[in-house]
Design a protein around this nucleic acid. Structure first.
Lengths: 205, 205
DNA sequence: GAAGAATCTTGACAGTGATAAGTTATGCTC
DNA sequence: GAGCATAACTTATCACTGTCAAGATTCTTC
């Protein structure tokens, strides 16, 4: 099982490579995504990295989109984990937004994929919707705790959706280079600043 | 120079010179984008729609990306217009968020392009950055008016960036199908609900 | 009119996702 | 173990994409 040539020689295929290919493909895709960014993520590149023929993936995924969807689902699971972990001291909202933002900043390619339009249009993979819903549910619970009084479920939902919109918007603008945060500012400061901005907006009203 | 056949027949190339090709290409691309969505927006499809050879665009745009960038810039100019127009009665913030959201809802493909990662990475077209900055500047001025007291410029900027993050995040989540707003709710209601949610969050803190 | 530049076309190349048909390994049944 | 059905993987190929190079056409300027 350990032939694993770093880079499959393009000359001749020596082994057939039966094995659990799907997770290997996902791993390779994830690494390729982090290293080269999306756009470089072709099935051929992924397959070559694993050392397998360009069309081998089709025996495990219906299409390129489905592979990407699995990747995105994995991203949502990681995000859920992050949101669950970083809930310690300080204002819960600030903490959670910071953790969210750091995840996006640290994994821009995956984040882009998670919320990109590559496959989201049309019907999505059930596992993806599930992972996404779970991440949002976690956020929702945190927001529910944040709100002082016990509230209507729909109110909690609206507040969570609004918070999600804000932090996702900030992350999206940052990732796509729309806002270039000067290095002197830093991520934490950016989140603090904008949260303070929101606070000021809603005090003034 | 008004030969200008409305729609070139795709069968045979009868004339050589079309005239001012660049705007025609942009127009065709815009319509194709609205009708078929991104992903269907290939240079070949655009060229064929204008009735011109597949590579004609390269005499007016350096690459496909540059054409898309011009399209995005146009989108930002439209958005600026929308933000300037819909500033009448009611709370300015709600009005402006509504206008913004309606624009995104009404032009999902262009909006996706404006904030997508297709070309934003790397150096962007100056005209695009300019149009984007102008749209944000407009938002910034609106937010400045919204805030009661005269404020520090950086505070205004932070508040505007936060507001932008929120409404962009909401639009992005909607466009990518992450949140499916039930038809019974409607756009206005969604914006109202989430704005109310934010208010509640920042009151409770 | 002719020269030269701008504009547009044809032809080609490398790369992409995807399908179809053939090849090899795995596992099941006796 | 032998035989065979099936899953896993490969090769060959297709249609499509962005892009470049070189040729054909039109416009401009003298």
């Amino acid at each position: 099982m350990q032939t694993a040539p770093k880079k499959a020689s393009p000359r001749k295929r020596d082994t057939y490579h039966v094995g659990n290919l799907a997770p290997q493909l996902l791993d390779a895709a994830r690494r390729l995504l982090d290293e080269e960014g999306p756009g470089k993520l072709s099935l051929r590149a992924v397959s070559e990295r694993v050392g397998v023929s360009p069309t081998a993936a089709y025996h495990h995924f219906a299409s390129r989109g489905e592979l990407l969807a699995h990747l995105a689902a994995q991203g949502f699971r990681e995000l859920s984990q992050v949101l669950a972990d970083d809930r310690e001291d300080g204002g819960p909202l600030l903490q959670v937004c910071l953790a969210y933002f750091r995840f996006a900043r640290g994994n821009p390619a995956i984040y882009q994929l998670m919320f990109g339009a590559e496959f989201v249009s049309g019907e999505t993979l059930p596992a993806l919707a599930e992972a996404r819903d779970e991440a949002f549910g976690r956020l929702e619970r945190i927001i529910a705790d944040e709100l002082a009084l016990p509230r209507d479920a729909s109110e909690v939902r609206a507040a969570a959706l609004a918070s999600w919109s804000y932090i996702h918007g900030l992350a999206s603008l940052m990732i796509h280079g729309v806002i270039q945060v000067p290095d002197a500012v830093g991520d934490e400061r950016l989140v603090e600043l904008t949260l303070g901005g929101l606070q000021r907006v809603f005090r003034g009203t």
